[in-house]
Design a protein around this nucleic acid. Structure first.
Lengths: 73, 73
DNA sequence: GTTCCTATATATAAGTT
DNA sequence: TAACTTATATATAGGAA
């Protein structure tokens, strides 16, 4: 998005990929949080990095479980 | 973010809130998709609007269930 | 409820420390 | 590694249809 337009394809360089993951994870969670507040919505975001690590965000009063529960019933 | 800086608090006007929800939902899903491609990550996003409607995005090969499954085991 | 327009706010790639 | 900088790409508020 900046010094050179970003092409949306897998970043092959491991270091760059991890840096981008960290930055965009922060951006995505921020956007999710804003959407929840602005629109009075329940929001959940799940991420598994390609190293298998889990990251998540939720603004649900009852945590992620409540969101999942809504899915199932 | 444009004609007047947006304050992050609940939008009281119902019409405006729904329009913003629709627009930001699109933006959030797009960001989630980009993160998945750029960083080779599995991504899931769940949204419940305040009218109770469910929206979701996932790039998991096996669908959202696979992401949830990873959470549980 | 969606889609286009466009001025401006925001996110962020690459570089630097 | 992680944090800061900043130029630029991108998202988006408000308006209109």
């Amino acid at each position: 998005m900046v010094r050179g337009k970003t092409v949306i394809e897998k970043i092959e360089n491991t270091t760059s990929r991890q840096v981008t993951f960290s930055k965009r994870k922060g951006g995505l969670f921020k956007k999710a949080k804003e959407l929840g507040v602005l629109c009075d919505a329940q929001v959940g975001v799940l991420l598994f990095s390609n190293t298998g690590r889990l990251y998540d965000y939720s603004n649900s009063n009852s945590g992620y479980a409540a969101l999942i529960s809504n899915l199932c019933y």
